[in-house]
Amino acid sequence: MANSLALTGVNAGYGRVRVLENVSVSVAHAETVALLGTNGNGKSTLMKCIMGMLRPASGSIVAEIDGARHDLVGRTTEEIVDLGIALVPEGRRLFPKLTVEENLLLGAFRRSARALITRNLDSAYATFPVLRERRRQLAGSMSGGEQQMLALARALMSEPRILLIDEPSVGLAPILVSRTIDKIKELKERFELTVLMAEQNFNQAVRIADRGYVIVHGHIAFEGHNTDELNNNELVRKFYLGL
């Protein structure tokens, strides 16, 4: 059954500061879509709008989950997570003074995920063996790469259909960035997820994306229908890479 996400004509901001202007982004079933842009262009704001953490001034945000359509605007974050959308937030937002296992178990707070908690915990440990080794360790005492793995694993504990990932590469060593990106691809395929990933590391994100958008100053400056269009485009080079 299909899981997809569509934002149409979204305007949003903080107080009088406009951040997103007329943004339309869509993610089709089982696609990985990259939202590309450098700092301060509105990627996280867009994620917040989808998750109900910021209410757009106008525009529509519609998710299709297991074939059922849901209008997301006006819903609380808890309700949106309950529908089957999970966000791996920027900065990971783990509970630093809880253990790795306690963080994972909290990921399954969603009502429909509770029954599957044992299976999902086993699967999280199978996917990320380092988390099993460190299950009794406090999350805040782990390295950045391990924390990013825990944030991914925790989001998956809620049994999402649509996974949003905000800046998975921030603060990681280059070798860990490519490992994290590979892991996202592996998880997406294993759990048949629909993925929207905000990222400023262009080359790494394009490696696993089916297609992507370039966001500049809150506008969608360019839409690439496949990775070739993103890789070989003058506009992208100018806007994004500054070449």
């Binding site: 998750m51 953490m53 609380t76 974050t77 808890e78 997570v81 309950d82 999970a86 966000l87 937030p89 937002r93 783990l94 509970f95 630093p96 003074k97 809880l98 306690e102 178990l105 909290l106 990921g107 399954a108 707070f109 969603r110 009502r111 509770r114 925790r154 989001a155 809620s158």
Partner: peptide, 21 residues
């Protein structure tokens, strides 16, 4: 679940919302 959420809530309330709580 409620107990673990109680232990987490003062560490990062908004992050708890992302866990559907």
């Amino acid at each position: 679940f409620l107990g673990r959420a109680i232990l987490a809530v003062s560490q990062d309330g908004p992050a708890l919302q992302l866990m559907a709580a």
